[in-house]
């Protein structure tokens, strides 16, 4: 192996030592780290600016929408109020009791030998009950059976629309007076009939239906 002489040995060593100087290396590392941190800072700053610009555009969109949504909320509240009121009024309308229909039924049941002298009807809203009291006079050979026929006919007529109806005698008594019916004198009986019905039971409210009262045609 040939002998090699390195005459620059010391110079190279010094150069290497200079290169490996920890202070210098730390300085480089610090500069690199500083650059990285600066880049990171700039990048973060850029993202913040980007976010702010996005926020501005969203804020502008919100500013456009906000009056609309406020108006929409107000209108929705108003409409819900209207719907609620209309439903409540419809409920009131649908649960009305039509007296004209009832009077028509009564008129159908009154035969020539029956005279109604008084009719009194009451609606008890809290109980959902309708009661009517009919005071009258029945004339005939057997006035009590005439009154009973009237009661049964009334039960049948009213019961067609009101299955819960109850028609009962409150009073039925013979009278001393006689009346002329069809040219002959007949004995009379005084009666009081009560009609009780529950057209709109509280437990099961019926579905809304078109229930119109009809004008009565017959006279009692």
């Amino acid at each position: 192996m040939p002998l090699q002489l390195n005459l620059l040995h010391e110079e190279i060593l010094q150069h290497r030592q200079r290169q490996r100087d920890p202070l210098k290396l730390s300085l480089y590392a610090a500069i690199a780290l500083g650059a990285l941190l600066m880049l990171n800072y700039l990048w973060t700053g850029y993202r913040v600016l980007q976010g702010k610009s996005r926020l501005n555009s969203i804020q502008a969109e919100w500013n456009k929408i906000e009056p609309k949504v406020t108006a929409a909320q107000k209108r929705a509240d108003e409409l819900n109020g209207i719907i609620g009121t209309t439903n409540a009024l419809d409920g009131y309308i649908e649960t009305r009791f039509y007296w004209a229909t009832f009077l028509e039924k009564v008129a159908h049941c009154v035969t020539p030998n029956i005279q109604i002298t008084s009719l009194e009807g009451v609606i008890e809203d809290d109980k959902g009950l309708v009661t009517a009291t009919l005071d009258g006079v029945a004339g005939g050979r057997e006035p009590r059976s005439v009154a009973e026929d009237f009661r049964q006919m009334l039960l049948e007529q009213v019961g067609k629309e009101q299955p819960t109806v109850k028609v009962e005698f409150k009073t039925l008594e013979d009278l001393d007076t006689t009346v002329a019916v069809g040219g002959s004198n007949e004995t009379t009986a005084h009666f009081v009939v009560t009609v009780g019905m529950e057209p709109f039971p509280k437990a099961a409210t019926p579905a809304p239906t078109e229930h119109k009262a009809r004008p009565k045609k017959e006279e009692s």
């Binding site: 007296w99 004209a100 009077l103 028509e104 009719l119 009451v122 809203d125």
Partner: peptide, 27 residues
């Protein structure tokens, strides 16, 4: 009675917010 019945029928049919609560008819 007939006129009254007709009047009540029309009253009930044309006034949906009206309801007869008590009624008394006598001779």
């Amino acid at each position: 009675f007939e006129s009254l019945g007709n009047a009540i029928a029309q009253l009930e049919n044309t006034n949906p917010l009206l309801s007869i609560k008590k009624l008394r008819i006598y001779a």
